[in-house]
Simulated assay, not measured.
Amino acid sequence: MAEIVASKKVLISGGTGFVGSAIIRALAEKHPSCAITVIDRSPPRPQHDLPKQVECMQVDVTNAREVGKAFLTVNPDVAIHTAGIVPCLADRFGRRLERTVWKTNVEGTRNMLNAAAENGAEAFIFTSTCCVTTDDLRISYPNINERWPTSPASLIYGESKAAAEALVLEASSDEMATCALRPSVLFGPGDYQLVPAIHACIRRYETPFIIGNGFNLWDVTHVSNIADAHVLAVENLVTSRTAAGEAFFIQNNEPIAFRDFCLAIWAHFGHIPPFEIRIPEGLAYFAGLACEITSWVTGSTTTLSRGSVRDACAVRYASGDKAKAILGYEARIGIEEGLRQSCEEYARRIGVELPDRGR
C-alpha cells in the first residue's frame, strides 16, 4: 500500500488551515514520497507548519476558473477537500453569514468535485462534519451511527455541509471514488475556536455557572486523529475502495460530559471554579432570548443565545464502529493527552505560563 500511495499526486484544499495542515503533516509522515500540493486562499501560516516539500498555490475554491486551473496544473490522482467556513460562536446560531457560508461550503465543493472529475482524479475525500446530523438542536444524539438522517431543520453550517456532503457521495463512481469524514468538535495544537472560547470563561468569571444538569455527553476529536482518518481514507480509495460512497463519523470515541471537558481545560490553567451555580436549561433559554433581543436592538453581538444554551446542553456522541471496520480508524491521541497538548500550545500563544501539575 505504501508504494501505491507514494506514487500518487495529492491536492489538498484548505491546506494552510488547522485541519488541512494536520492532514498534510500526517500524509507526509506516513508517505514521504507522495507529491502534495496545497490550494488555499491564504498563504502558509506560521502557526500551522507544513513540510518543506509541499507546494502551495493561492486559490479561492469559490472561483471555478481558479480551481480548474489548479487541477489542470497539478493533475492530481487524489483530491482532499477541507476548505470551508466554520462560523464563529457569535454567528453559529444565526443566518447573518448564510450566503457566504453556502457559497464556500457548497459551491466551493461543487467546483472541487467538477475539477477533480474533469481532470481524471481517482479519489476524492471530503472533510464533512458531525453537524450534518447534529446541528438540529431540538434532538438528542446518543451513540448515533451513519444511518441517522441529516435534518431539514438545522443551523446554516450543518445545512451547508450536508448539502456539500450529498454532492460528494452522489459523485462516487468507478472512475472517481469519493467518501466523507465527519469529525466531531475539533481540538488540538493550533485550535482557534474551542479551547480559546472555554479558556475565555475564566476572564469573564463564567466558570461557576452550569447550564442544565452538566452531565450531557458529547464527542471531541483531536486534530491528529482526524488527520489519521484522512490518510486511511486515501489509502482505502486508491486500493480496495470499500469506503467509496460512504460517510464516516470520526471522533476520539471517548464521550465526555461538556462540563468535565471545560473543567479539565481550566485546571490546566490553574483555575478551579470557586463555587457552582446551576441554571435550569429553561431559565437559561429565556436569558438567551433576552440577549438576542438586546443585540438586535443595539446592533451588538452576543455569545449567549437560545442556540448556545441548547448547544451547551446537547447530547451528541457517535459510534466509531463503521470507521474502524472499513477504514481501520482508531483514535491515536486520547482526550487527556490531547488536552495537555492543546493547553500547552495555547498558553504559549497567549504568553501564559501554566502551573506545574506534577509532571
Results as ranks from 00 to 15, higher is better:
Met1Gly: 06
Ile4Phe: 08
Gly14Tyr: 06
Thr16Val: 11
Glu29Phe: 03
Arg41Thr: 13
Ser42Leu: 11
Gln53Ala: 01
Val54Glu: 01
Val59Phe: 05
Arg65Tyr: 05
Glu66Ala: 15
Gly68Asp: 13
Ala70Leu: 03
Thr73Ala: 12
Thr73Tyr: 00
Pro76Ala: 12
Asp77Arg: 03
Ile85Asp: 00
Phe93Thr: 05
Arg96Tyr: 05
Arg96Ile: 04
Leu97Glu: 11
Val101His: 02
Val101Lys: 02
Trp102Gln: 12
Lys103Arg: 13
Thr104Phe: 01
Asn105Arg: 14
Thr109Glu: 05
Asn111Val: 07
Met112Arg: 07
Glu118Val: 07
Gly120Ser: 08
Phe124Met: 09
Cys130Pro: 01
Thr133Trp: 00
Thr133Leu: 05
Asp135His: 14
Arg138Phe: 06
Asn143His: 13
Arg147Pro: 00
Trp148Phe: 14
Pro149Gly: 11
Thr150Arg: 05
Ser154Val: 04
Ser160Leu: 00
Ser160Gln: 06
Ser160Phe: 05
Glu165Asn: 06
Glu165Cys: 02
Ala166Arg: 11
Val168Phe: 09
Leu169Cys: 08
Glu170Lys: 14
Asp174Pro: 01
Met176Thr: 10
Ala177Leu: 00
Thr178Lys: 03
Ala180Tyr: 03
Ser184Trp: 01
Ser184Gln: 06
Val185Phe: 02
Pro189Arg: 13
Ile198Glu: 11
His199Gly: 03
Arg204Lys: 14
Tyr205Gly: 10
Ile210His: 10
Ile211Ser: 10
Gly212Tyr: 06
Gly214Asp: 04
Phe215Arg: 11
Leu217His: 03
Ser224Asn: 12
Val231Trp: 00
Ser240Asn: 10
Pro255Thr: 11
Pro255His: 14
Phe258Cys: 07
Ile265Tyr: 03
Phe269Lys: 12
Gly270Lys: 11
Pro273Glu: 10
Phe275Ile: 07
Phe275Lys: 10
Glu276Asp: 10
Phe286Trp: 15
Glu292Arg: 13
Ile293Asn: 05
Trp296Gln: 13
Ser300Cys: 06
Ser305Val: 04
Arg306Leu: 08
Gly307Asp: 07
Cys313Ser: 15
Ala314Arg: 15
Tyr317Cys: 11
Gly320Asn: 14
Asp321Tyr: 05
Ala323His: 04
Leu327Thr: 10
Gly338Ile: 06
Cys343Val: 08
Glu345Pro: 00
Ala347Arg: 03
Gly351Arg: 09
Gly351Cys: 08
Arg359Leu: 13
